[in-house]
Simulated scan of single mutants.
Amino acid sequence: MSNTEEEKTVKHSLIGAFAAVVSLAAPAVAQQHLSITTGGTGGVYFPMGGGIAELISQNLEGYSAVGEVSGGTVENMARIFNGDADFAMGIADTVSQAASGTGAFEGRQVPVRTIAAIYAAPMQIVVLDEGPIQTLQDVKGTRFSIGAPGSGNEVNTTTVLGANGISFDDLGRTERLSYTETADGMRDGVVDGGLWASTAPTSSIMSLSASRDLRLIGLSDEEVAAIIEQDESFVPFTMPEGIYPGVEAPVQTVALSNALVAHEDLDEELAYQVTKLLHENAEYLVSIHPAARDMTEEFMVNGASVPLHPGAQRYYEEIGLEIPDRLRP
């Protein structure tokens, strides 16, 4: 082979190699990586966020996404504020505080907007069937668990009871117990009831129902209205017949939604496409975690505690949903 032919061969090889490198590199350059900050690995947020990340990665050209472990909603709102995450899972009351710069976010308002409410955490007032509690007002004078000290459950119980004129001083004995401890106390007959602010069905309640007959206490229309008037993060919610053994009719209560949210500056078209993905793949999310069965069209919108992202609003309006004034950007 002559030097000229050898030079041509080398040149062509180099050109081919360069083209291959460019071809391999191009998708990586075009791919935009998205972070969805979720919660601990033992909760609902982590698998739900991971499922949403998989939907994005498999269906939105030019994007890949990953669910990130976090300490929960407060940390998630900080990540949105600092630009360390593109999307976040969050519970309604904390997200609302972040948006208004109140509570844990005093002096630091987070410009957060809702993509979609995903599932509800209903306030489940569970009592022993043979016990004295028939209505919410009947908790007065009883041995009632309000949740572990400093927990979100304790905060929620304070709101539910307080909005309806019941203070902890009205209880016969105030028990500050975790969900598992409350169930154990009811099983042993030393606690009359408690409030669970969690997804339903809840494992500790299911376990308790195997050994004790239970009753869910429903809220009246007036009691629901009083709670929402005190804290608009709550929404009306009906627990279905058969959710637990012995529950033979729907039970009216209130719930806090858990939503996918984002910074208000998130690209509008991306927000639109992600909202569309969630709506069209609700059954897939139910396969990730059954809590997503709450994700009806109406709940996706009305479960929001802060205004919708403009991209999400555009999608919901396109499919004919009515947007309440409180949720317009």
Rank of each mutant, 00 (worst) to 15 (best):
A120K: 01
P111S: 08
A53Y: 06
Q97R: 09
S257Q: 03
P27N: 09
S100L: 11
T159M: 14
F81N: 07
T296K: 06
S96E: 08
I125Q: 01
P132E: 08
A120E: 06
M300C: 03
A262S: 14
A85Q: 09
I243G: 02
G246K: 03
S167P: 02
D192K: 06
G103P: 02
D188A: 14
H309V: 06
V286M: 01
T94L: 15
I118W: 02
V261M: 06
G242L: 13
A78H: 06
V235P: 01
R143C: 09
A312L: 09
L161V: 15
R212F: 10
H33Y: 13
V261F: 00
L266P: 06
T94G: 06
D213H: 04
R113K: 13
Y284I: 07
V254H: 03
K8E: 05
S204G: 03
I133M: 02
S198Q: 04
G242Q: 07
L34F: 02
S198N: 10
L266K: 04
V66L: 13
R314Y: 10
G71C: 04
V247Q: 05
Y316T: 06
V95C: 04
V74F: 11
M300S: 00
I115M: 08
E298C: 00
A19Q: 03
I91H: 02
I125E: 04
T9E: 13
V224T: 08
L256I: 12
S100H: 12
P310V: 05
S287T: 03
Q134P: 02
E229M: 13
S209K: 09
S211P: 02
G103R: 03
I323S: 04
A226R: 08
N281Q: 10
H279Y: 13
L55I: 12
V112K: 03
A17Y: 03
P310Q: 10
A291E: 00
M1K: 06
L34V: 10
V306M: 01
P245G: 11
S178T: 13
R108V: 14
S64M: 07
E264R: 12
Q137M: 14
A85E: 06
V301I: 15
